[in-house]
Design a protein around this nucleic acid. Structure first.
Lengths: 149, 149
DNA sequence: CTTGACCTTGTACCAAGGTACAGGGTCCAA
DNA sequence: TTGGACCCTGTACCTTGGTACAAGGTCAAG
C-alpha cells in the first residue's frame, strides 16, 4: 500500500504517517524505485492502535514502547516481562480512577436533587485519593515560602 | 489563601493557577485591597481534581465541563443529567479499552513463548474494535483519491 | 525605611502532536 | 505529451498545556 491509502484507511493525515515514522512509531517502510513508501497492510492496524491508545491518554512515547514490546518479543524476554508488568500497574491505576469518576457521574445524575449543598460535591470527591499521583511530568521542586503563622 | 499557598498545597506552579483562571477552570477569585487573589480552601481540591483528571486523558476543556456540572447543579438539571450521561458512556468506553489493553499485556507477560508468530500480536488486537472511534478532535474530511483498481 | 518574600500584569518561550505549504518528481489515462 | 492525482523532502506554522522572565507593587520584620 502507498501512503495515501494507508492514511485513508486509518483515517489520518498523510503527514501524520511521516511524522510517526520520524518519531519511531512506524518502521521505515521499503520504497518503490521512485522512492514511494510501500507499507504492509498491517500498518493500518498499527495506526488505528496508536489512535485508540492516544484516546486513552497514552503519549506517543509510551505507545512507541507498547509497540516495541510487540516486536522485541523474541529477545529480552525478562526485560519485556518487567515492562509489561509496569504497564499493567499503570493501566490498573487508570481504571481505578475511571471507576471513581464513573461513580461520581452516576451519583450526580441520579441524586442531584438530594445533596443540594454546594460542598461535598460528588465530582470533586471522585478523584480525592490517597493514591500517589502517577507519572505526570514531574515538577516537584518549588522554592522557599514565607512563614504562614 | 493566597495564590502561592494554593500552589504549594496543590503541588502546581503559581503560573498554572493563573493559566487555569484564564482558561475558565478556576473562577476569578476575590481580591485583597492590594489586588492579590484570595482563594477559598476548596480551590486546592479543585486543582488536585484537575490534575488527576488530566492523568486520565481528559483535556482541560473537558475538565472545565466536568467542573461546570458541579456548579450548575441547581439550574438546568435535565441538561446536566444529559451531559453526565454522555460522560458516563465515554468513561465506559475508556474502561473497555483499558481492559483490552490489560488483557493484552497480561497475555504478553505470561505467554510470550507460545505465540511466537509475529502476526496476531495481542498488543495490536487489544484495541481492534468495532466500536466507533470516540471524540478525538475530528478530522473527517479528506480529499478525492485516485482510483485503486 | 529597607530588604526579601511575596503578589501583579504582560509577553515570550517551550514541548508535544500535528498540519500546511513550497518546490519538485512520478505515473497513467486521454 | 500533458494534466491531475499522487508521491518526495524540507521548513514553517498551529494548538495545548504550561513555564519563564521583565518590570513593577505590597507587606512584615529587622
Amino acid at each position: 500500500m502507498l501512503i495515501g491509502q494507508v492514511a485513508t484507511e486509518a483515517d489520518v493525515n498523510v503527514q501524520t504517517l511521516r511524522y510517526y515514522e520520524r518519531r519511531g512509531l512506524l518502521a521505515r517502510p521499503s520504497r518503490t524505485r521512485a522512492g514511494y513508501r510501500r507499507y504492509p497492510e498491517e500498518t493500518v492496524r498499527v495506526v488505528r492502535f496508536i489512535k485508540r491508545a492516544q484516546d486513552l491518554g497514552f503519549t506517543l512515547k509510551e505507545i512507541r514502547e507498547l509497540l516495541r514490546l510487540r516486536s522485541d518479543r523474541r529477545q529480552n524476554r525478562d526485560q519485556m516481562r518487567t515492562i509489561a508488568e509496569a504497564k499493567i500497574l499503570d493501566v490498573d491505576a487508570r481504571m481505578r480512577d475511571l471507576r471513581r469518576i464513573r461513580r461520581a457521574l452516576a451519583t450526580l445524575q441520579e441524586s442531584c436533587e438530594c445533596s443540594s449543598r454546594t460542598l461535598d460535591c460528588p465530582i470533586l470527591e471522585a478523584l480525592e485519593s490517597d493514591a500517589p499521583a502517577r507519572s505526570r511530568t514531574s515538577n516537584g521542586g518549588r522554592k522557599k515560602m514565607r512563614e504562614t503563622p
